[in-house]
């Protein structure tokens, strides 16, 4: 085993523990914090895969924005601290079976993709180059300009929708 493989295994163990604790922790805030640990582990995996852009995006979007949003939502909706409820109900066996089936299905699908068996060792260019290529592809008419602009429309729709739901029109009017 190389050093990289050992590091990969260690990070994977952390991610799995984080994920398990997320679903099994009775305290909602703790569950959110374990989720953050799992997400941070995923960021570390991205670094190992030489996808440094994805790694920082993972931290910037998931850990900084989404997880904080989750905690705020938890605080808004219910009494979160020190809550103890039963973590499993009657159909947990069924759920575990379904999860296992989905996992094995995805695994068998992936194992049939031939490219995944190769080791990507031919990343010769600096990864600066890849970010630049990504940036060019995003605004290139022949490539992904449509998804790029659609993404912005989607974000706009998300923002308007969120504000509309959080603030119904009758409250917003007035002199402001």
């Amino acid at each position: 085993m190389t050093v990289l493989q050992i590091i990969f295994l260690g990070i994977s163990v952390i991610i799995v523990i984080g994920a398990l604790m997320t679903v099994s922790s009775p305290n909602l805030v703790h569950a959110a914090l374990w989720l953050i640990l799992a997400l941070a582990g995923v960021a570390a995996i991205f670094v190992l895969l030489e996808a440094s852009f994805l790694a920082v995006v993972q931290v910037a979007v998931y850990i900084d924005a989404i997880s904080i949003l989750i905690v705020i939502a938890v605080m808004l909706t219910r009494r979160a601290m020190g809550e103890t409820e039963r973590q499993i109900n009657r159909s947990w066996l069924l759920a575990a079976f379904a999860a296992f089936m989905v996992f094995s299905g995805i695994l068998s699908l992936f194992s049939q993709v031939p490219q995944l068996a190769n080791t990507p060792s031919d990343l010769v260019e600096s990864s600066e180059f890849y970010i630049q290529e990504l940036g060019k592809a995003l605004v290139n008419v022949d490539q992904s300009i449509i998804p790029f602009e659609v993404a912005s429309v989607l974000l706009l729709a998300a923002m308007i929708g969120a504000i509309f739901i959080a603030r119904p029109p009758e409250r917003a009017g007035g002199d402001s």
Binding site: V29, L33, I36, S52, F53, A55, V56, V57, V59, A60, I63, D64, S67, I68, V71, M75, M81, S126, S127, E128, I131
Partner: peptide, 28 residues
């Protein structure tokens, strides 16, 4: 000299936000 330095600054700097939130939540 990572090639995503600027985004790294943003993301690692905001982890502090998380720490502050944890401090507030856990203090009772």
């Amino acid at each position: 000299d990572i090639n995503v330095g600027v985004l790294y600054l943003v993301s690692i700097g905001s982890v502090g936000t998380l720490g502050i939130m944890m401090a507030g939540l856990s203090s009772n």
